[in-house]
Structure formats: structure tokens, C-alpha cells
């Protein structure tokens, strides 16, 4: 137990020590990540999560990387007052201090275009979030069923 505690403290110190340059994105926490299974690879996939900025400076999410899809992008679905839904790249996502950006069905989503393999229910994939300060964060995203509505039912 004492040893475990020690290694946690050491890990924390290490991350603080090496990343003074990206203090902003180091304060980012990702919660409730999930994705929908795909049927084959011809259709784009979608993933969702909550991105929380626990720091005191704003951070900007500028890009995504994953070996699952050649073109991962943040998209925004919007529905107009006529009930027509459309989807477009959302561009950079700024997250104010203490703020949370929620990626959820019908709003912001990670759009996984040009899938390199099918997204199978029960598996997971890793997704790297890239921030404007150069910081990166790797998130393991569990894949749920095609008919899933959230991180858990």
C-alpha cells in the first residue's frame, strides 16, 4: 500500500515536472467516453464524452488522432426550427476555466471517418485529444451497441 501510494505520488510529480509548458491542457479530465458500434467500415462512426477543464486557464481542443479512423473530427449536429438536422465540422473547441464541454447525441460528437476496422461492441479504442498548447491526452473509448443512447443505460 505504501509502495503504491509512493508510485502514484511519483507519477503525479513526474507529470507536473515535465509538462510545465502545457499546464492548461494538463488540467483536462475526460469522463463518460463511449462510442457506438459500427456495421462494417463503410459508414462513419461516432463517439461521445465529457471534457472537463479543471484548470484556471482556458484550453482549446484543436484536433484528434486515432488509428481507428483516418479522419477523426469534432462535428456539431444542429436542428433548426423546421426540425431539419445537419452536421458540420465544429472547428476548434474552446473550454473556459472550470467549464465542461459535453459531446452527446444530437450535438457535438467525435465523427470517425474512414474507419480502418469495424467498431465492435464490447471492445474499445484509444483516441488522442490534441490541444493548442501542445498537450495531448489519450482516452480509451469503450464501444457500446449500435442502439446505445449513452455511456450506460
Amino acid at each position: 500500500m505504501k509502495q503504491m501510494l509512493f508510485s502514484v505520488v511519483a507519477g503525479l510529480a513526474l507529470s507536473l515536472g515535465t509538462s510545465a509548458a502545457h499546464a492548461g491542457s494538463d488540467a483536462v479530465v475526460v469522463e463518460d467516453a463511449w462510442a457506438r458500434a459500427s456495421i462494417g467500415t463503410s459508414r462513419p462512426g461516432a463517439a461521445y464524452m465529457e471534457i472537463r477543464n479543471r484548470g484556471e486557464e482556458a484550453v482549446t481542443l484543436t484536433g484528434l488522432a486515432t488509428d481507428l479512423a483516418e479522419m477523426p473530427e469534432i462535428h456539431r449536429t444542429s436542428t433548426d426550427d423546421q426540425g431539419v438536422s445537419s452536421m458540420a465540422p465544429a472547428g476548434d473547441i474552446a473550454i473556459a476555466p472550470e467549464a465542461t464541454v459535453t459531446l452527446e447525441p444530437g450535438g457535438l460528437h467525435v465523427m470517425l471517418m474512414r474507419l480502418q476496422r469495424p467498431m465492435m461492441e464490447g471492445e474499445s479504442f484509444s483516441l488522442t485529444l490534441v490541444f493548442s498548447d501542445g498537450g495531448e491526452m489519450k482516452v480509451e473509448v469503450p464501444i457500446r451497441s449500435i442502439s446505445a443512447r449513452g455511456p450506460e443505460d
Binding site: I39, R43, T77, M87, P105, G106, H109, R149
Partner: peptide, 15 residues
């Protein structure tokens, strides 16, 4: 069916 967000969500809602 190539719709990644709204359509599977609507079909899940309806289900």
C-alpha cells in the same frame, strides 16, 4: 443509414 449521430439516436429513442 450512413448517418452516424441523429439517425441511430432517433431509432434508439423510438425503440
Amino acid at each position: 443509414t450512413f448517418c452516424p449521430d441523429v439517425c441511430p439516436t432517433t431509432l434508439s429513442d423510438i425503440s
